[in-house]
Measured scan of single mutants.
Amino acid sequence: RKEMTAACTPRRRIINLTSVLSLQEEINEQGHEVLREMLHNHSFVGCVNPQWALAQHQTKLYLLNTTKLSEELFYQILIYDFANFGVLRLSEPAPLFDLAMLALDSPESGWTEEDGPKEGLAEYIVEFLKKKAEMLADYFSLEIDEEGNLIGLPLLIDNYVPPLEGLPIFILRLATEVNWDEEKECFESLSKECAMFYSIRKQYISEESTLSGQQSEVPGSIPNSWKWTVEHIVYKALRSHILPPKHFTEDGNILQLANLPDLYKVFERC
């Protein structure tokens, strides 16, 4: 597991931080080997919608929660590849102030007048994250320049770009939802926020969305749709870069829909 690298990086740093090793061990302890084997050997059937997909393993048909699986995938990559990410360069710098204002204007932020003026909160978020810029760049390849612009994001899987519609809320939550006081809790909560931002979430995906850094293989055609990215990038990574937690067998994120021999018997009677 320590050699797990989802995106190509030129050289690998050895990380011996106790906090990170502890988080890696927790993933191992909570892992479910049968689910790992199923995901490793599954045959992708198709997307139901951005949140759900169908896959077959041996004779069984499964309904998989793409949102939760991708979130767990990105969390584990962030923990196992800690401080070893490439950088996704933004085509132009994104001012943190503008991103924070967009987030505060969104109902998702939960902002009320009692929280104070949005401009003041946005300025605080910019200054707060600028103070964390060195650590964010060093460990997470999340790059913020001296003017308070976001200029780079971590490359977690080759050819995958997170849904940038979720970027404003991500920046807001970096400042408000991460435990910045304790090292282990900081790395864990920061990785979880980043994983949620990178995950496939239906509120940020339309039929026209593209999450891939590449064009489709047909010359002159439109960019790959999110469905292509889910199948050929995300579920491909799920084959080798995730140890599913045991609770996925109990919380409805992986559901067995049918045993195909039983279905064949039904059709034979028709």
Rank of each mutant, 00 (worst) to 15 (best):
R1T: 09
E3T: 11
M4L: 10
T5S: 11
A6M: 13
A6V: 08
C8E: 07
T9Q: 09
P10T: 09
R11I: 14
R13D: 14
R13Y: 15
I14H: 07
I15R: 13
I15M: 05
I15S: 07
S19H: 13
L21R: 02
L21K: 04
S22P: 06
L23S: 09
Q24I: 14
E25Y: 14
E26S: 09
I27H: 14
I27W: 15
N28K: 04
N28C: 11
N28I: 12
G31L: 09
G31F: 13
G31M: 11
E33G: 07
L35P: 11
R36F: 15
R36K: 05
R36G: 13
R36Q: 13
L39F: 08
H40L: 11
H42P: 06
H42A: 06
V45L: 03
V45R: 02
C47W: 08
W52A: 07
A55D: 00
A55C: 06
H57V: 05
Q58D: 03
Q58Y: 14
T59G: 03
L61C: 09
L69A: 09
E72S: 08
Q76C: 07
I77W: 11
I77Y: 15
I79K: 15
I79L: 06
Y80E: 06
Y80D: 04
F82T: 02
F82W: 02
F82A: 02
F82E: 04
A83I: 02
V87H: 05
L90D: 00
L90P: 07
P93N: 05
A94S: 06
A94F: 06
L96G: 00
D98E: 06
D98Y: 13
L99G: 00
A100V: 02
A103K: 00
D105K: 04
S106N: 05
E108D: 04
E108A: 05
S109W: 13
G110A: 02
W111V: 05
W111P: 02
T112R: 12
D115P: 15
P117C: 15
K118E: 14
L121N: 01
L121I: 01
L121P: 15
A122L: 01
E123P: 02
Y124D: 01
Y124C: 12
I125C: 12
F128C: 02
L129N: 01
K130M: 14
K131A: 11
E134I: 05
D138E: 13
Y139D: 05
F140R: 01
F140P: 10
L142I: 03
E143K: 03
E147F: 12
G148E: 06
G148M: 08
N149P: 01
L150K: 00
I151S: 07
G152M: 01
L153D: 00
L153N: 00
P154Q: 00
I157N: 03
I157R: 05
D158N: 05
N159E: 11
N159K: 08
N159L: 09
Y160H: 05
Y160K: 00
V161N: 05
P162A: 04
P162F: 00
P163K: 07
P163Y: 05
L164I: 02
E165G: 03
G166P: 13
G166Q: 12
L167W: 01
P168R: 01
F170Y: 03
L172R: 01
L172T: 02
L172D: 00
R173D: 15
R173Y: 02
L174W: 00
A175D: 00
A175Y: 05
A175L: 15
T176Q: 01
E177L: 13
V178E: 00
D181A: 03
D181C: 04
D181T: 05
E182G: 03
E182L: 11
E183Q: 01
K184M: 09
E185R: 02
E185A: 05
C186P: 01
F187I: 04
E188S: 05
E188C: 05
L190E: 00
K192N: 07
K192P: 00
E193I: 04
M196K: 06
M196P: 00
F197A: 05
I200Y: 09
R201W: 05
Q203K: 08
Y204F: 04
Y204Q: 07
S206L: 08
L211R: 09
L211I: 07
G213W: 07
G213L: 08
Q214M: 07
Q214D: 08
Q214R: 10
S216N: 06
V218D: 08
V218L: 07
V218Q: 07
P219A: 09
P219Y: 12
P219R: 06
S221I: 09
S221D: 07
I222Y: 09
I222F: 06
P223K: 08
S225D: 05
S225Q: 09
W226G: 04
W226S: 03
W226F: 06
W226L: 05
W226R: 06
V230Q: 07
E231Y: 10
E231S: 14
E231N: 14
I233A: 10
V234P: 00
Y235M: 08
K236T: 11
K236L: 02
K236M: 14
A237Q: 10
L238W: 13
R239C: 14
R239K: 08
I242D: 15
P244S: 14
K246F: 14
K246D: 14
H247F: 14
H247Q: 07
H247G: 05
E250C: 14
D251G: 04
D251T: 05
D251M: 11
G252Y: 13
G252L: 10
N253F: 03
N253I: 04
I254P: 03
I254W: 14
I254D: 02
Q256V: 06
L260V: 03
P261H: 12
P261A: 04
D262W: 15
D262Q: 13
D262P: 05
D262L: 13
D262R: 12
Y264T: 11
K265F: 14
K265R: 09
V266C: 13
F267Q: 02
C270A: 15
C270G: 15
C270L: 15
